[in-house]
Write a protein that binds this DNA or RNA. Structure first.
Lengths: 232, 232
DNA sequence: TCAAAAGTGTTCACCGTACACCCATGG
DNA sequence: CCATGGGTGTACGGTGAACACTTTTGA
């Protein structure tokens, strides 16, 4: 059992956010990183983080940290796990709880992130990060892959309206593998959670491609009926 | 970024262990619970827990807590997630990191757990637990189901040698659904990670049923070759 | 008229599922 | 000899994977 509530084992608890965005030009998954502005490791690349305050939950803290950097609220976030190596932070005993967030890369406040010296990096060309942040990123990518296979979270990374091809490129980036567009369309259509719009996106071809929108209500109704979303 | 390393936001961090065992007589998944011996909620049922000390990781703390209760080491454990509601513990701001553990129910130190007032409960007939421990248990059961579907962790809950029927009953208990023995055998055999022994277990029938043993090396070799364990 | 991307169907192999009878043994 | 659980095979439907040609349109 708990021995007693003594103060000597209290520790600092931080949250660190792995922020994913999808770059449609380069068709790559990207990661928002900041240049650390305090010692130790000043000037090195790092995840955006902050300490949990005494009157907030970890989720609150993660939402606050994400908001401070991007100006975005109501974002898909998920707790990854706690990192607790005794010497993970050389200054003080600090636990860190990693959260990963999926944002539409077009939506965030560009001036705000610049004021933090933040930058987007392809997950394939990210710099080395401080402390155990590399581990956190690896874990987040694995989690994202698992989640994207069984939850319609991919849509969080796209604008509201998107083409089949954009969606396909996104899944290709998440899994680092090419997909067959016929099979992909068939799969997506069989899930029956998108609405096909009358509009076309003409920026990518002369013919233009139809836009789709994720229909949350349809999805939730199907879930209630025992539907299982399976992309992979 | 982190503002600064101030002491005012330090908190206590506990670990709570969801300890699963498989009761072969009753063919049920069970949970080891303790009667809380300090206020608040003295005398109520609770998960076994303890505070993380300043010189140990969370994994260390979870291993220590499990060892103190059961006398077992080298047990499969996995971090579930952190619970951080501000008022989850009425005495002090405390985070708790839930861990789940799988043990062979025959192996633990019965006197030791009795000295803690601990008892095994079927997951279907567990008492109401203190704080947010009910949530932790629900999360652990979901995680166990997912894990058992894609990792050969079921074996942690059985003795070294077991029959196909025992293994099947275990999976039935984990998923709360009945399985067809022909399909189950076929599935298990196709995975090719068990060794069939020459011995038979004669306690359950006159004919007796063959004993099997999980072959870790075989499993790891297959993993290296890109094998994917899929029970469901 | 041509270049560039969009859109669309079929075939086949494999896997999960449903289902029923004989076998070995101890009492 | 018989009751009890152990062990085994087949048929079917559904899903994932491979694969190529036609359509639209702006320049």
């Amino acid at each position: 059992m708990r021995n007693y509530y003594g103060a000597e084992n209290k520790v600092l608890v931080a949250v660190d956010c792995i922020i994913f965005g999808f770059d449609q030009q380069e068709e790559e998954l990207k990661l928002l990183l900041v240049k650390r502005d305090i010692p130790p490791e000043l000037g090195k690349w790092s995840l955006m983080g902050g300490f949990m305050l005494h009157d907030e939950t970890l989720d609150d803290a993660a939402i606050r940290v994400l908001y401070d950097l991007t100006g975005l609220r109501n974002i898909y976030m998920e707790q990854l796990r706690v990192f607790s190596k005794v010497d993970r932070d050389p200054v003080a005993r600090t636990l860190s709880v990693a959260y990963f967030a999926l944002i539409n890369i077009e939506d965030h406040d560009k001036d705000l992130i610049q004021s933090y010296g933040a930058k987007w990096f392809s997950i394939n060309r990210k710099p080395n990060l401080i402390f155990d942040h590399n581990l956190m990123v690896e874990g987040a990518i694995r989690r994202l892959r698992r989640r994207a296979a069984s939850n319609p979270i991919g849509f969080e990374l796209l604008p509201e309206k998107f083409t089949m091809r954009q969606l396909q490129k996104l899944y290709e980036a998440i899994y680092s593998e090419e997909l067959d567009k016929r099979n992909f369309n068939k799969k997506i259509n069989s899930l029956d959670v998108l609405e096909k719009l009358d509009e076309k996106d003409k920026t990518s071809s002369r013919k233009g491609s139809f836009l789709y929108r994720f229909n949350q209500e349809k999805y939730l109704r199907k879930m209630d009926d025992g539907f299982v979303f399976k992309m992979k």
